[in-house]
């Protein structure tokens, strides 16, 4: 019933809106801000299609109230590349880590955070790290390769 003025910084840009308390962050992002790259695939917090970075950590934005993100920094897939392509995006396309593309934004956000924490993950660590994100198309093998490729690219970038 209560409504609140909130300010959320999304992909570096601050947005101030009046929202109903129950508005889910994913709907705030998709419908208030028209950033439709963040998807919705379930109603039980199971699929991870809605994953965004909330203050730098992957979070399922379908299970966060927008009011509770007041003052937060959010990164969505639209903010991933910053103009160009992020190594994770590059890795996903080079290694065919996506098919229908629906899980992909969430999968990439999780992968980005994973690589920042662990720049050189093993296959097992990648599988573990993305286990909160479901993909129905790829069978994960190529997602693993995509993350490995992104890891290489990130290393190349930091060396060069």
């Amino acid at each position: 019933m209560s409504s609140h003025q909130i300010s959320v910084t999304i992909n570096g840009e601050e947005h101030t809106r009046e929202v109903e308390a129950r508005l889910l962050l994913v709907h705030f992002i998709r419908e208030e801000l028209d950033l439709t790259g963040t998807h919705i695939g379930c109603d039980t917090t199971s699929c991870g299609a809605c994953t965004v970075l909330l203050n730098g950590v992957p979070a399922k934005s379908c299970t966060v109230f927008a009011v509770a993100a007041d003052g937060a920094e959010v990164t969505t897939v639209e903010g991933l590349g910053n103009g160009g392509l992020h190594p994770v995006q590059q890795g996903f396309t080079e290694k065919h880590g996506l098919q229908c593309g629906f899980c992909t934004p969430g999968m990439m956000m999780t992968s980005k955070a994973l690589l920042e924490e662990n720049p050189d993950p093993s296959e097992e660590e990648i599988r573990w790290g993305i286990s909160g994100n479901l993909c129905r198309c790829t069978g994960y093998v190529n997602i693993v390769r995509a993350v490995q490729r992104a890891s290489e690219l990130m290393k190349e970038n930091s060396d060069g």
Binding site: R30, G37, H39, V77, F92, G101
Partner: peptide
């Protein structure tokens, strides 16, 4: 098709 999907620019029904 990847060019749009990896940028979150796919256009799915709910978009």
């Amino acid at each position: 098709e990847d060019a749009r999907f990896i940028r979150g620019q796919g256009r799915y029904i709910d978009d």
